[in-house]
Simulated assay, not measured.
Amino acid sequence: MTLAPHRHQTDDLAECGWRTEEIVQPDGSTAFEMIPLTEEEFLHPEEGYHLPNSTFHDRIAGDIKDILTRRYLNDPTTAVFGDLIIRWEIANFKDHCPDTCVVFNVQEKDRVRTEFLVNSEGTRPCLVVEVVSPRYRKADREIKVRQYARAGVQEYIIFDRRRVRNQVLDEVLGYRLIDNVYVPITPDDEGRILCETVGLLVGLHDGEVVVVDAQTQERLLRASELEQWAIHAQQQAAQAQQRATQAEEEKSQAEQRASEAEQRAAQLAELLRSQGIDPIEFKVNSED
């Protein structure tokens, strides 16, 4: 099998994403050609489509999914999915594949799924999170706003990074479904969006996801931060163990010196007695 980029669109593959198409060669052999995605295919991907991404996209999408997954780790009825095709099963309405979504009232949360059938599952995503793909910014920021509202998603959060006047601008946008219409969520003073569905404040700081529990104000750590914390805790534990070992060694050495001193004192007393000298009187006289 041969896999080759589309002959006219090689430079667009990373920016557009791609799908593969089977091509029969003149000699009868089969090749699979990489075809850039159209905007429609980006909006409604199927299994096997390769969506465009970037290091920013991967980091943000990965961090938000990881944080949400850990938040609901012990909740058997709340699932967090990433890059899973959602079959809305709505007439004349196409499917989506959000970067991350949260679904309440799920049965068999850990069952392997290649797609999520809304009617069959009896529930739908309550929160969808998308990280904007620059080539399809309008799709993420405008078209999907209308489509996720129609799909009945209670909240839609968008992370975006773009360049304005040679400066990098990070944005977090949010929409909440009210009377079947999305209403923009006003950010707080720190630019964070309140997600009522999951009880979290989400934002960006220096290009990194910031997630805070809206009730406790506790910040939920990213996986990289947890790893750093674990390493630091291990280092502290190792240092504490080293100090304890050193203290134990010093204690043992002190006890050994005390034992040796007692032995020498006993030997001296025995020597004095052998010479007819009372060790106690000898000690008193020595002190005088």
Rank of each mutant, 00 (worst) to 15 (best):
146 R>W: 09
146 R>D: 12
147 Q>P: 00
147 Q>H: 15
148 Y>D: 05
149 A>Y: 06
149 A>R: 09
151 A>N: 12
153 V>K: 10
154 Q>V: 13
155 E>R: 09
156 Y>T: 11
156 Y>G: 10
157 I>Y: 07
157 I>R: 07
157 I>P: 07
159 F>S: 01
160 D>S: 02
161 R>A: 14
162 R>K: 12
162 R>M: 08
162 R>N: 08
163 R>K: 12
164 V>P: 03
164 V>G: 02
164 V>D: 09
165 R>L: 04
166 N>S: 15
167 Q>R: 15
168 V>I: 15
168 V>M: 14
169 L>T: 13
170 D>Q: 07
170 D>F: 14
170 D>M: 08
171 E>M: 12
172 V>N: 09
172 V>C: 08
173 L>A: 14
173 L>H: 15
174 G>F: 06
177 L>G: 13
177 L>E: 08
177 L>Q: 12
177 L>F: 09
177 L>S: 06
178 I>C: 02
178 I>H: 06
180 N>P: 00
181 V>G: 01
182 Y>Q: 01
182 Y>N: 02
182 Y>A: 01
182 Y>V: 01
185 I>A: 04
186 T>L: 02
187 P>E: 07
187 P>C: 04
188 D>V: 09
189 D>Q: 05
189 D>L: 06
190 E>M: 08
191 G>S: 03
191 G>N: 06
192 R>D: 03
192 R>A: 07
193 I>T: 11
193 I>V: 12
193 I>D: 10
194 L>S: 05
194 L>C: 03
195 C>D: 12
195 C>L: 15
195 C>V: 15
195 C>S: 15
197 T>S: 14
197 T>I: 10
198 V>N: 03
198 V>G: 01
198 V>R: 05
200 L>V: 10
201 L>P: 09
201 L>N: 08
201 L>E: 11
202 V>C: 05
205 H>F: 09
206 D>M: 09
206 D>Q: 13
207 G>H: 08
207 G>C: 13
207 G>D: 11
208 E>V: 11
208 E>D: 14
210 V>Y: 06
210 V>Q: 11
210 V>F: 01
211 V>K: 08
211 V>F: 02
212 V>F: 04
212 V>C: 03
213 D>T: 10
213 D>Q: 03
213 D>V: 05
213 D>N: 12
213 D>I: 03
214 A>C: 01
214 A>T: 05
215 Q>M: 02
216 T>A: 01
216 T>W: 00
216 T>E: 01
216 T>M: 00
